[in-house]
Amino acid sequence: MKQPELDRFDRRILAELQADGRISNQLLAEKVGLSPAACWRRVRTLEEEGVIQGYSARLDPEKLGQGLCVLVNLSLQRHTIDSTAGIEREVRSYPEVLQCFAVTGNADFVLRVVVPDMASYDRFLNEKIFTLTGIANVHSNFALREIKNTHSVPVAD
């Protein structure tokens, strides 16, 4: 996939939008040194090219009663396209799973899961993870505290 050519204005726009996705076009244009029309066109182009994938609000899981964060390592019994695709499809459907990565190393997948408490995590394991076909091993790591959690991608000039 071809990467779009980003100049310093595009990079500034991306940095500003990552810091505040609700910024007005007028203020964004002022901050990056463009006219509002030119800024709007660039933002639209970045969206159309898929550089900007969307906008969302960051929520505090604890304030929503989802205070237990677990990093779950899944290892597969066998590595086939069909079994992997099935697991990926199922995991995507679980609202408790915020992120899922196919990885190398000691596991095949790493999931970031949030649930209210240990009893909820036990139900999640028994009703969802342990019912997946082809899972050989599940290893859970419980987060003690969050040190850094960002979705901002470096866009240096």
Rank of each mutant, 00 (worst) to 15 (best):
Y121Q: 01
Y121M: 10
D122N: 10
D122E: 14
D122F: 04
R123P: 00
F124Y: 06
F124N: 00
F124W: 04
F124C: 02
L125C: 12
L125I: 11
L125F: 05
L125E: 05
N126L: 09
N126A: 14
E127T: 07
E127R: 13
K128R: 15
I129R: 01
I129W: 01
T131F: 01
T131I: 02
T131D: 01
T131M: 08
T133F: 10
T133W: 05
G134M: 02
I135Q: 00
I135R: 06
A136Y: 01
A136W: 04
A136M: 06
A136D: 05
A136C: 01
H139M: 10
H139I: 09
S140L: 06
S140C: 04
S140Y: 07
S140G: 03
S140A: 12
S140Q: 05
N141C: 07
N141A: 10
N141S: 14
F142H: 01
A143F: 00
A143W: 01
A143I: 14
L144S: 05
L144Q: 07
L144T: 07
E146R: 14
E146T: 14
I147T: 11
I147R: 08
I147H: 08
I147K: 07
I147V: 15
I147G: 02
K148C: 02
K148H: 09
N149S: 12
N149A: 11
N149R: 13
N149H: 13
T150S: 15
H151E: 13
S152K: 15
V153T: 13
V153E: 09
V153I: 15
